[in-house]
C-alpha cells in the first residue's frame, strides 16, 4: 500500500518542502504575519456584555419555551409526531333565540343567504389561506397538537369576525371538530367554537349595541 512507504527523495525536493514547520509547533500555528486589527483591550468590554446578554436571552427563551404552545424560540425540533383532522361546521339560527342547527361545511366552502337576499359563496380559505390547513384529511400537527389547537381557535375567531353580515346572515358561529392523534395514540376529538358573530348581536331599538 502506498501509504506504508516513506516519501522518497524526489518527493522531498518539492518546492517549499524545506519550509515545514517544526514538529509539534504546526498544530497551533496561526498565520500571524498579516497586519491585525487594532488591539483589543478594556475598551472592548461591550463584547462581554453583549455576549452575556445574548446568552441570557437565549437561555430564558429556551427555558420558557414550554409556556408557549408552539415552543417558539425554544429549538424544540420534532417535538411531537401528532396528527390532526379537521371538520368545520356552521351553527345556524333561523329564528333569534330559537334552536340552532349544525351544518357541515364541506371542504371549507359554504353558501349562505346574504343581506341583499341572494346566496353568497363563502370559503374558509378567503381568510385562512393555504398552506396551513386542509379539511377532512389527516395531516401532521406542525409544532405539536397544542400549538395547532391554539392557532385553530384563533383562526376560527378570525373567520367569525371577518365574515360580514352582507355576505352571510345565517351563521351564528363556527364550530371545528379537531381529531387529534398524539404520537400515535388513540384519537381524541376537541371541539373548538368561534366567538358569536357580531352581525347576530341583538340590537336595541335605538340602534345602540
Amino acid at each position: 500500500m502506498e501509504g506504508d512507504e516513506e516519501p522518497r527523495e524526489s518527493d522531498r525536493r518539492a518546492p517549499g518542502a524545506e519550509e515545514a514547520p517544526p514538529d509539534g509547533a504546526g498544530a497551533t500555528t496561526r498565520t500571524s504575519g498579516l497586519p491585525s486589527l487594532p488591539a483589543a483591550g478594556t475598551g472592548k468590554n461591550h463584547r462581554i456584555l453583549f455576549a452575556l446578554l445574548w446568552l441570557a436571552v437565549q437561555a430564558t427563551l429556551i427555558v420558557t419555551a414550554g409556556r408557549r404552545s408552539d415552543g417558539a424560540f425554544g429549538f424544540r425540533m420534532f417535538n411531537e409526531s401528532s396528527t390532526i383532522k379537521l371538520a368545520l361546521y356552521r351553527e345556524l339560527e333561523r329564528d333569534p333565540g330559537g334552536p340552532r342547527a349544525r351544518v357541515p361545511v364541506e371542504g371549507g366552502v359554504w353558501i349562505a343567504r346574504a343581506s341583499d337576499g341572494t346566496n353568497h359563496r363563502m370559503s374558509w380559505y378567503d381568510r385562512v389561506p393555504t398552506p396551513f390547513w386542509a379539511f377532512d384529511q389527516e395531516m401532521p400537527a406542525s409544532y405539536g397538537a397544542a400549538a395547532q389547537l391554539e392557532r385553530l381557535q384563533r383562526a376560527l375567531d378570525d373567520l367569525a369576525t371577518h365574515v360580514s353580515a352582507a355576505d352571510d346572515l345565517e351563521t351564528r358561529r363556527f364550530v371545528l371538530d379537531v381529531t387529534v392523534r398524539r404520537n400515535g395514540r388513540e384519537p381524541v376529538v376537541h371541539q373548538l367554537t368561534s366567538r358569536e358573530r357580531e352581525a347576530w348581536t341583538p340590537r336595541r331599538a335605538d340602534g345602540a349595541p
Partner: peptide, 9 residues
C-alpha cells in the same frame, strides 16, 4: 500541520 508527511491513503 505538525510537519509529518502523508502519502497514499
Amino acid at each position: 500541520r505538525d510537519g509529518e508527511r502523508a502519502t497514499g491513503v
